[in-house]
């Protein structure tokens, strides 16, 4: 127990050290790659609070990611407040959207829940795509400035290294908060819902209320990820709210292992590295991704971390 815990802590510290030194260790393009891994890792980890911990598979998480992206881009374009205020507003905006969609969705479970979240996700995409006056339609929102993080903190986050560090700090803090949630009493209730929501309700748990709470928290951090993603790309486009964007956290989480807190982060890393590598040879990267995923689901249902766990002689 303690041996495992200590090993985990050392691994985590080593990982943080590598991430902190990344701009010195890695070639220039890899700074962009790692920024993207961190952002999409946070997106996948937020998704997994709902999937791996609460037992609800959402196919519509791009709705919150996209909301975060657009709120951030529009605020920067029209008002240019301090960047951290932009992120906070975008996360809250996404949480509000999640509250509305979740309020309907948590009435259902399993495939019906998944279908409903997919349907709502499509509606949000359609809205973003069609509301040209606000969102610029398929052109998206671009040409916004990147403001200082806080008033008086004159850091130029348009510099990729600075943006990387800002992302690293925010993702690390968010991951820490998410992790605390999973091991809290609230998190225990969420895990009980994943295991057996009927038994939970007969233990006194108001099931829907907790599902909705998980949904909103998940939407909040997804929105934060989206709000980091749009400025990173210097544009918010409807694709960020598209259902193919919803598929990414699902795939990343399954790749890394949904039963592990860091599974989604690892999955995001492997996913983006594979994409980088395969697209340098062929345009048909989706085909190879499909092959890899099919292989994983059949042979490694617990994801890559499940495989490591088995190598280390962990649980069966």
């Amino acid at each position: 127990m303690t041996g495992r815990g200590a090993a985990r802590r050392v691994t985590l510290l080593a990982l943080l050290a590598v991430l902190a030194a990344w701009p010195w260790l890695a070639p220039y393009f890899a700074i962009f790659l790692m920024t993207e891994i961190l952002i999409l890792g946070l997106f996948a980890a937020s998704f997994n609070l709902l999937f791996g911990y609460t037992g609800l598979l959402s196919f519509g998480h791009a709705a919150y990611f996209g909301t975060g992206a657009y709120v951030a881009a529009l605020l920067l374009r029209d008002m240019a407040p301090p960047f951290l205020a932009v992120l906070a507003a975008a996360a809250v905006g996404a949480a509000v959207v999640a509250l509305v969609i979740g309020w309907f969705s948590v009435r259902l479970t399993e495939v019906y829940f998944a279908m409903l979240t997919l349907a709502f996700g499509m509606m949000v995409y359609a809205l973003v795509h069609q509301w040209r006056g606000l969102t610029g339609g398929s052109d998206g929102v671009a040409g916004f400035p990147l403001t200082a993080p806080l008033p008086g903190v004159a850091v130029n986050i348009a510099d990729p290294v600075n943006y990387y560090y800002l992302t690293l700090i925010l993702v690390a803090v968010s991951a820490y908060v998410l992790h605390r949630i999973t091991v809290s009493p609230f998190g225990l209730i969420l895990r009980s819902l994943r295991e057996n929501s009927e038994r939970a309700s007969f233990a006194g748990v108001p099931v829907r209320r907790y599902r909705l709470a998980a949904f909103v928290v998940s939407g909040l951090f997804s929105g934060l990820a989206g709000a980091l993603f749009a400025p990173f790309n210097r544009i918010a486009v409807p694709e960020m709210a598209h259902w193919t964007q919803s598929a990414e956290p699902v795939l990343m989480t399954i790749l890394g292992g949904s039963q592990y807190f860091f599974g989604p982060f690892l999955g995001a890393g492997v996913f983006l590295l594979l994409r980088q590598w395969i697209t340098s040879y062929t345009q048909e990267w989706m085909f190879f991704l499909g092959v890899i995923l099919a292989f994983l689901v059949v042979f490694l249902p617990r994801g890559l971390l499940g495989l490591f766990d088995r190598w280390l002689g962990g649980r069966s």
Partner: peptide
């Protein structure tokens, strides 16, 4: 933990999201 699920609810601690259970 099986037992604690019921205890968390009974003790009104279901909204505690920061402290470790």
């Amino acid at each position: 933990e099986n037992v604690q699920v019921a205890l968390v609810i009974r003790q009104g601690k279901g909204t505690r999201w920061w402290r470790r259970a």
